[in-house]
Nucleic acid binder design. Structure first.
Ligand SMILES: [Mn+2]
Ligand SMILES: [Mn+2]
Ligand SMILES: [Zn+2]
Ligand SMILES: [Zn+2]
Lengths: 124, 124
DNA sequence: AATTTATTGCAACAACATTGCAATATTATA
DNA sequence: TATAATATTGCAATGTTGTTGCAATAAATT
């Protein structure tokens, strides 16, 4: 499965990069310059996640948000940070704070999904 | 809206209590002794959440899990603890560890949803 | 026993995400 | 450059989870 470069991929990544925050499929479809099918957007996003370009966060509104990875390998281990979802402006941002947890012996953590929901500074 | 005691409510709460862990709607419907409509189960669960009997956790599988509250008030502030979702046995359990976070000034946190996903001790 | 109204079942709906398949476009190869 | 291989896309259908309107039922109160 060697990746190919397409206008769709570039447009999606460009929107997320310019936004400077995590975005959901519907927000991307709204902001992107060209018309892209909904299913295609999901496929592009999930491929970026597989490739370590984006990481996925599930927020309490039940939607998936996709954020740029900042120098991560395939394991996505370094994405164990908190996220903040604002209920007013509906944005989700990565916080710099790392998630510190300890689990009972014998448990293997493969993924971390930590979302704080509330009102962001701008909307306060 | 004064609550009424019904066999449905008792049956749902009994299943969760006996399980000793958080449960999703479909798991409850499967385990409960009597036949209860899907929508009714959700309504019962959400009412328990409103009353501070249960708290709701959104896992990475996109499902809502409902866990017993352990001496909490209506704010559910004391439910800021980690949860562990096993991808093998599909169970979700509350961990004793509290979630410690710090957010930038001006941010107001209203809810916390922290789920660690992986393989539990039993399934390792 | 009669009244009030919270609760329930049912079906429809809503929201979000995925999948099958044919058409298209990118990349590699000749 | 022309051809072949196949990754990508659009479209429609499907899947999954959760909610809602409404009439019927049942619990609590009088
Ligand atoms: Mn992030
Ligand atoms: Mn819990
Ligand atoms: Zn905001
Ligand atoms: Zn397990």
């Amino acid at each position: 499965m060697k990746r190919r470069n397409t206008p769709t991929k570039e447009a999606v990544l460009s929107v997320i990069t310019k936004a400077g925050q995590a975005m959901s499929q519907d927000a991307i479809e709204e902001k992107v310059a060209i018309d892209i099918n909904r299913a295609t957007i999901y496929r592009v996003l999930n491929r970026f996640c597989d490739d370590g370009v984006l990481h996925k966060v599930l927020a309490e509104d039940g939607k998936q948000y996709f954020a740029l990875c900042d120098g991560c390998d395939e394991t996505h281990q370094e994405h164990q940070h908190f996220h903040f979802k604002c209920t007013v402006c509906e944005t989700l941002e990565c916080l710099p704070n790392a998630v510190n947890y300890s689990i009972p012996a014998g448990y293997q953590v493969e993924n971390v999904n930590c979302v704080l929901t509330g009102v962001c500074k701008k909307c306060s």
